[in-house]
Amino acid sequence: MKRSVWLWRWRPNPLRRRSYVVEAWALVTVVLVTLAVAGLTAVAVTRAVDHTMARQRTARHMVTAVLTEKASANSLYAPAPQAHVRWTAPDGTVHTGLATVRYGLQRGAAVAVWTDPSGTALVPAPPDNGTARAEAVGFGVAAGAGICMLSFTGWVLVAQLTERCRAECWAHEWADIGPRGNHRAA
C-alpha cells in the first residue's frame, strides 16, 4: 500500500527534521489564512465597486438634446460619430457639448445624452445593473486572486530560504561525519 507523498512531513522518519514539520504546518496555516483573506477582500471590493456604480447611476441624468450639426463618420470603419449637441439644464440654462451619436442623424434630431448632477456637463452613460454587477464581481475576483498570488509568492520565497538553510546544515553535518565514515574495511 502506497502512502501519500503529501503527508511525508508528518510521518515519523529518522531523517525528518523539525524544520520540515514547522514548514508543513506553516503551509497549512498560510493556505487557510490566504483563502479567508482573499475571500473577504473579494467580497469587500465587489461591494465597494457595486456601490460606486450605483451612485453613478443615481447621480447621472438622461436629458434630450438637439443635434446642431449632421452626424457623419470620417471613414467607414470609424467608431460611432461625435457631433455637437445642445441641451437645457434643470436651471434653464442652455449648454452645448460633443456627444457620441448614431451615424446618419440630421441636424435638429433629438438624441439622449447623460449629464452630471448639475446638468451642465456631458458624462458617459452609467453602466446598467447587469454590467455593473459583472464589473464588480470581476474586480472582486481580481483582488482575491491578487491576494492569493502575493501570498503564494511570499511562501515560495520563504520555502527557498528554508531549503537553503537546510542544505547548509546538511553540508556542515556531512563535513563532520563524512571523513569518519569514508574508511573502508580492507
Rank of each mutant, 00 (worst) to 15 (best):
L157S: 10
G144E: 10
V156F: 01
A78G: 09
V45L: 05
V113F: 01
R18M: 07
C148M: 12
P124A: 04
T153A: 14
P12N: 10
N13A: 13
R107K: 15
R57D: 03
E168I: 01
L32Y: 00
P127G: 08
G119K: 03
G39V: 01
T46I: 04
L157D: 04
I177C: 10
L105D: 13
A125S: 09
K2S: 14
K70R: 14
P79Q: 12
G104A: 11
L122Q: 04
L157E: 07
R55P: 00
E163N: 14
M62T: 12
T41W: 02
L32W: 00
V141G: 03
A125V: 01
T96H: 10
R133I: 04
A143G: 05
T52M: 04
V49H: 05
R180I: 04
A136M: 07
D116F: 01
V43C: 03
N182C: 07
P117H: 11
T68M: 12
H84R: 15
T96R: 13
A112E: 10
V123D: 05
V137I: 14
C165Q: 12
S75F: 01
R9C: 08
Q56F: 08
Y20L: 09
A125E: 08
S151N: 07
A59E: 11
V22L: 14
A54N: 15
